[in-house]
Design a protein around this nucleic acid. Sequence first.
DNA 1: TATTTTTGCTAAACCGGTTAAGCAAGCTTT
DNA 2: AAAGCTTGCTTAACCGGTTTAGCAAAAATA
Lengths: 338, 338
Amino acid sequence: MKKASIQDIADRLGVSKALVSFVLNGKGKENRISDQMIKKVFEVARELNYKPNQISKWFRTGKTQTIGLIIADISNPFFGKLGREIEQEAYKSGYRIIFSSSDENPEKSERQLEMLKKSMVDGIIIAPPPGSNVQIENLRQEKIPYVLIDRYFPEIESNYVIIDNFTASYDATKYLINKKYRRIAFLTVNDELVTMNERTNGYLKAIKDAGDSYTPMVEKLPFSHKKAEVYDAIKVLSSAGDGIDAILFSSSKIGLMGMEVIAELGLRVPGDIAVVSFDDPDFFKVCYSPVTAIAQPLEDMGKKAVQLLIKEIESNEIQPKSEKVALKTKFIERKSSG
Amino acid sequence: MKKASIQDIADRLGVSKALVSFVLNGKGKENRISDQMIKKVFEVARELNYKPNQISKWFRTGKTQTIGLIIADISNPFFGKLGREIEQEAYKSGYRIIFSSSDENPEKSERQLEMLKKSMVDGIIIAPPPGSNVQIENLRQEKIPYVLIDRYFPEIESNYVIIDNFTASYDATKYLINKKYRRIAFLTVNDELVTMNERTNGYLKAIKDAGDSYTPMVEKLPFSHKKAEVYDAIKVLSSAGDGIDAILFSSSKIGLMGMEVIAELGLRVPGDIAVVSFDDPDFFKVCYSPVTAIAQPLEDMGKKAVQLLIKEIESNEIQPKSEKVALKTKFIERKSSG
DNA sequence: TATTTTTGCTAAACCGGTTAAGCAAGCTTT
DNA sequence: AAAGCTTGCTTAACCGGTTTAGCAAAAATA
């Protein structure tokens, strides 16, 4: 027994399928269908267990009520939480989420964007990996609704939702300075994303503002995210000159590896090295030394991104708006910087 | 300028759209289209920047090359990693993933199943929450291809991919016994899922096999996953009778909360309490006492689930098969059970 | 030369809805 | 009594592809 279509209902009642369509879309009244007929249509629809075929609806309207999401890696707690918020907010407005992980690789994100375009998503939320500028510029020119999240490209007019990275980084460094740490290092990844640059700049500014007795010490890791690289970086920092007494990690992924490495080196936290890290995954609380964190407002970020996107999808304006949202972070002091 | 359709190409060349469709689907030869014409069609297609409208293709074929995924929570590292593997494996076969999080709530999963059915996904991978038996039975009767993951219902013939929970739990308990721990507690959630029952049974059997000097101590938490409940449970266990010297946690979520609570109670691990936990999230390695873990083969689970599902989607058999896959876990010894 | 086969292409149905336009019958107005 | 309005419905185009059946002309065969 196949699925019932509108035609089946129409045949059963000896009416046209237009009538059935009107009734089932609640437009019976405005199309002057009689009350008895409306009742009968609903009866037969239930009887035949009628379920509308969404695809044909999409086909007609060109809309799929689906949003594509590209993030670095859904199994990374930062993106997992963000994805969760995005899913929830989208669901409220009747949108579904197709997700894919780019691993910060522009070739992957390009393939995934192609895939999403073919999938006829109504819009895209993307944390653009370094080197994906052209892809985003294309999105803009193709007038596909999109919102950037966590990063943006200053040269491309876009909707985006980020945090105020400069201030967050500046304040965290300032905090360590006030705590009387003197040799404060900053461990980050070597990429051309504004997000990370801003964090570096915030750190550098705070060190500079603190006076001549402070030396900026920045280590940029390759983007590969290997633990061995973190190991080497920390080794280099610890042994050079007067060594270090505090580290600011620019992401939870680096922070996690950093905490592992520090433990392996037999150093105590905060005794030998104080630690502050961007992001606040659950495990920072149960780390051997609970990690002081710069927590991002993931709920707000996710919600805002979805709201911006849906606004753009559902607006009929020719010129896409570009709203820029920068949210505040929350500083959570724990033992690691004690 | 709108998007070019097959008709536009046909018009430009003064041929029928059937011809264009044949050529673009690589069926030119078998439909005896001349070589020059094939060449011309491709030329014009490029010229007009033709992109096929997927929706109409779906509409015709009734397939969307999309898989629906329902797990408890994508921001939980266990499901995040699993989701990642599923995404990757599906992508290889040209399938997309729509995901949603049920929070172990059967009402939510029911709504999400409805949503996915309406979304015309070709099949569904689901970690069914407790109480969702009827929903799964419906899936079966509606002949929608699906694969259960992480749990299953013995009474419903289904494809599923799980781990050998009984053995994993038995072996872990045995390990603690061999390590000379005497008062070994098992902390789990109160639900009717086989997965958790098997873990309990494995624990109980090991305790029983160990002889009369061992007492089974099982605490079942409500499913709400509140930290306060974990706190109470551990308090109760520690203060009753001779107290406890080891805990086996039945999931990483409980394990994480357990480690927090133990720290808050000022107990040392493994000095006061040894700990072993199911699952192996990244942070177990950097916990204040790195946690001995029962790691699940998430990569194999994800891959297998996708393979089973796609096999079922793409087979034309009337009677769906039900393949049952139980994978082995990997025991990773760390300091917490030293 | 008459018939069959091959070649190269077209026509049109089809998937399942949505929606603008229109029509006949009955009722109201002038 | 003619004209207009209302009611309750139908017709058919449309979205953009896929696919079956078939046709005319050219080539091959009897």
